[in-house]
Design a protein around this nucleic acid. Structure first.
Lengths: 205, 205
DNA sequence: ATTTTTGTTAACCATTTGGTTAAACTATAT
DNA sequence: ATATAGTTTAACCAAATGGTTAACAAAAAT
């Protein structure tokens, strides 16, 4: 088939549409007909390419989950100094969250719905953030005396929380703090530097 | 009607069942039949007391949302010194999250689904956390020189994020950090003191 | 004691929804 | 040209789902 580069194949259109519908409505709220409409194709074609809703959802979820845990491990396991790791992590993560604003909510949501299913999949073993190296590094820095005594688990939670949560709680934050979209975006940009500064200020000896 | 104090009225049974089903499956995933079964009554009775799914859901959501924004405002607007406010806030909030583990996810989830609906309701105006007093207090402390220069908005986000996020990301956290439920609970208990310590260490001059 | 109101149910209904089927269309190979 | 394999559709189906109805039971009011 000489595929026209400009207009996408049916399969591509379906994936794009499914991503949109699933990420905005969640698995339970998504309608196969809506996905078909969005893709501009017949509903039967969905089942031709992806046998059922469950399967289609899984493809989307796995694809999106890759983005949610982007280069975390490569940062966590790199040879960078601790403070630089923290800086790089925030910067990378915020970039990714701003590129895919729906993402954090979508992943967390489905992970809460059925944790076993995804967290025990072989995918999880390869892609879930593995913080062990970072934790070890924190312990070394404490022993060296460059940072104060703090449980690495908490430090890690602090880092993750401050980076991810504002994106999940965006509607609430915007309402409570009277922010429009532009303002929210500006604040998130600031956080790239603000979070590392805040953390380092707290732990540096 | 001489109501027996031990067994609940139908209405109470419905509310209890609806809460369970809605908070575990979300609005879209909840089934009216499941609520009826859980309550041990006929499905028609649901519509007798609460005219439709939407209405029943709203009752539950509003009820639960009260718990999610517990005594925040009374703490934020109290006359306590800043550091003490932070301590009180963490302690109160973590208590509430541990009492209702499903809560953070449920509220955030539905708030993301349809932000306008709830955030513009008259309920929101009365119950949404109003951080203005706290922000003013932060600004005063900066001027006084008791804490370093930091944008109050960020400080507020840090505080909220560190307190709430771990409960939303519980499945991921437990998996990545190899924690069983007991361990997770222990860590959350520690955070009552850990978060204020972390913040104060960062901003105190 | 009888009527009226309130509470509860089984059976039913209309619509939505995920999924199937068989036919038609398209491109490529023969 | 014709067969063939892959692609797409309209029409259809069964199950699920939110909601209604009419009858019945229990309390309360008269």
């Amino acid at each position: 088939m000489v595929k026209n580069k400009i207009d996408k194949t049916a399969e591509e259109k379906i994936l794009l549409a499914a991503k949109k519908v699933f990420t905005t409505h969640g698995m339970a709220g998504a309608r196969m007909q809506d996905i078909a409409d969005e893709a501009g194709i017949n509903k039967a074609l969905l089942h031709y390419y992806f046998k059922d809703k469950e399967k289609l959802f899984e493809v989307i979820f796995m694809e999106e989950a890759q983005k949610f845990f982007p280069k975390i491990n490569s940062i966590f396991e790199s040879a960078l100094p601790l403070f630089e790791k923290i800086e790089r992590f925030c910067d990378e993560y915020i970039t990714e969250m701003m590129r895919h604003p729906y993402l954090a909510w979508f992943i967390m949501n489905e992970l809460n719905r059925d944790p076993e299913k995804f967290l025990n999949s072989s995918w999880a073993k390869a892609n879930l953030p593995n913080p062990i190296r970072l934790v070890e590094q924190m312990e070394r820095e404490i022993k060296k005396g460059t940072i104060r005594r703090i449980q690495p688990v908490h430090l890690l939670m602090h880092l993750l929380s401050m980076t991810v949560f504002p994106f999940i709680a965006k509607p609430m934050m915007q309402k409570a703090l009277q922010m429009d979209d532009a303002h929210f975006k500006k604040i998130m940009e600031e956080r790239r530097k603000e979070i590392p500064r805040f953390i380092i200020e707290s732990i540096r000896k």
